[in-house]
Design a protein around this nucleic acid. Structure first.
Lengths: 203, 203, 203, 203
DNA sequence: GATGAATGAGGCTTCATTCAT
DNA sequence: CATGAATGAAGCCTCATTCAT
């Protein structure tokens, strides 16, 4: 699939170089709104353009790997860690929304990944796979809460989860777009958001 | 700015040609996932590639015009027409969601426009403007309902509207992606969706 | 296979341009010993490099088409025309060897095509096909002469024809390489060559 | 000029490494029809790509050395050894043709060396020199036989030798190309070939 | 209005070669 | 001796755009 499929083995220095290239690619994608020029990445990473092809099969493969890397970081920060073990559903989700907001505020790639879904099949496949995984997780999350009696069983998780996730993403995009209405009172916005979710999930 | 700015005047035949090009561009954008090649559009529209430049300033201008055209149709079908004059907020919204679903099912460009936001400033501007207009309409819509007492005043429209619109869009995308969970019982899905919205808006 | 397979239709001027490119490619191949650079071909043909791709799918396709063109000319000059209708086998072959010699002396591509068989599959396929056709023709030629009683039936055409054709080609290559021994008395060389063939074929 | 000119002195292990590289280069040339990539040779030879430059000055030098090596083996097997001391011309040549056939059947490089004459001057020079040496030997061979009265003096060795050598080479190529007509009865083919040569040389 | 031949800048990719370790 | 990361020149190819007819 991506260059990872070949399971290339690199030494220590090589791994650092690979990371430098990935970081430069992320920066370039952010600056150019989802586009990327090999020469610029090479410049930023302080390597020759040819070297990039030791680590990535093609320009497209580099983009895919960068997006994959972005999702890895996002997942690590927002998804994988259960921020409040033992807490109820809505408290946990609130923590996640908070962490999402702080993540996208500092990661330059966030806006691009959330806005411009790629045309190139290889990259599109990565995004599709990761988004589907998020959705799947959210659905299982809700189903579990329903089993526990936290959420009403009459709610269809397959409808509610896309709506919540799409809603949250749109909100994040609005935030990134410097919407004045949303950015002036961040705390109130979060309260409103969670209240919306709570009502929507019948809590 | 866009081709409209020039206010070109065309004869009858010319208008038809322009429409054929727009339709071909829509088809090409749909087939290539948001990308477009002038030569292919010319082929599909049965015109020479040079002719396209009599009607549109540039490739980007053509894309912008096509997207604009798409939104015109969407608005005409979903937004502008008040499907149920005198009905309450949730009934009207249900009608709009229904019309949205039928529209995207038949318009090949829907998936692309909803998924791939374009990088080119000119096109991005069109999309941004039309989306902002939709959002603005939704917000005014809610504020009005709040004045009328239909919707609780404590709900912040600037949070709730993006969430609902993003949620609906994500749902539409899932529908177009042949999600088996959503497509098997269309009517139940719609009920679930509207129930979600009703709860979320405190109805 | 080559660009001919697409059966593109070109206007009058376009055909001339295509011919100019083919001629330039032949010259470039001759000058660089079988190699070819698009930019140089474009320069020689007085066209932009991009234009070449309107007429040929790729650099390799251009080379293949050029070689094909070379063989077309060669066949027209040496093979297709029966130089001496009604004459006996050896007289006809003598005429063909003469025509071969005059052809390769004036066609700049001859040396390259006869010496450097190409690695690129597309070009190799062209050469293989054309050479096989020549060999097939020669074999049928001999078989016919054997039926007529001109050539002894005990001679195996499938052995004799490759040997004669390979021998002639080697001789042509020697001629092109300015072998002093062969070039000083052209007429005697031809006599010797035909005598060799006559003996070899039992005449 | 070539790596031989430097007269590098290598230890025992080094000689083995050099041989491994040469063998890998031969294999690569055979597999890719006359082309060669340093990285692939290094892979096959189980050495790093950098190491190749300890033994050969350049890629071209490596190819030249490989071809030289091929001719050394060929000459040792076919030319240098006088297979039948004291025998007459045609018997000796028959032995050589037999040995040629067995050699090219087992050496993977044979087809490539006989078919693709290289463009790079250094390699072309090697091929040209070795071929010229072969031709020179054949000519002297014939002249000697003529002095002895074995072969008729009216035959021009400078015409007959290229024709025979070119003919034999073409035959070998046909054999390697799996020509069904030639491969089904190897012994008869050899008889026919030698009969052809005998007639051609007036024997 | 309409054609399609022609342009040419711009980017990706390859791969022989070098060199620090 | 040996490695393999790094270089960078070189060339193919694409495709939006123009313009003579």
């Amino acid at each position: 699939m991506s260059s990872e499929a070949k399971a290339k083995v690199f030494g220590q220095k090589a791994k650092q170089t690979r990371q430098r290239i990935l970081a430069a690619a992320a920066q370039e994608l952010a600056e150019r709104g989802g586009d990327l020029e090999i020469a610029n990445v090479a410049n930023t990473a302080q390597v020759s353009s040819g070297l990039i092809y030791r680590y990535f099969d093609s320009r497209t493969d580099l983009i895919a790997a960068t997006v994959e890397d972005f999702y890895d970081q996002y997942d690590q920060w927002v998804i994988d860690i259960n921020p409040l073990p033992g807490a109820d559903w809505i408290s946990r989700e609130r923590a996640r929304v908070e962490r999402s907001i702080s993540f996208i505020r500092k990661h330059p790639l966030a806006k691009v990944v959330f806005l411009n879904r790629q045309k190139e099949p290889l990259v599109a496949a990565v995004e599709s796979r990761r988004l589907a995984a998020h959705l799947q997780l959210a659905i299982e999350n809700v189903l579990l809460a329903q089993e526990r009696g936290e959420i009403d069983s009459s709610i269809d998780a397959y409808v509610a989860c896309p709506m919540i996730m799409g809603g949250i993403r749109e909100l994040l995009v609005q935030l990134l777009s410097d919407s004045p209405q949303l950015n002036k009172k961040p705390h109130k916005m979060l309260d409103q958001t969670m209240a919306f979710m709570a009502r929507a999930m019948g809590l």
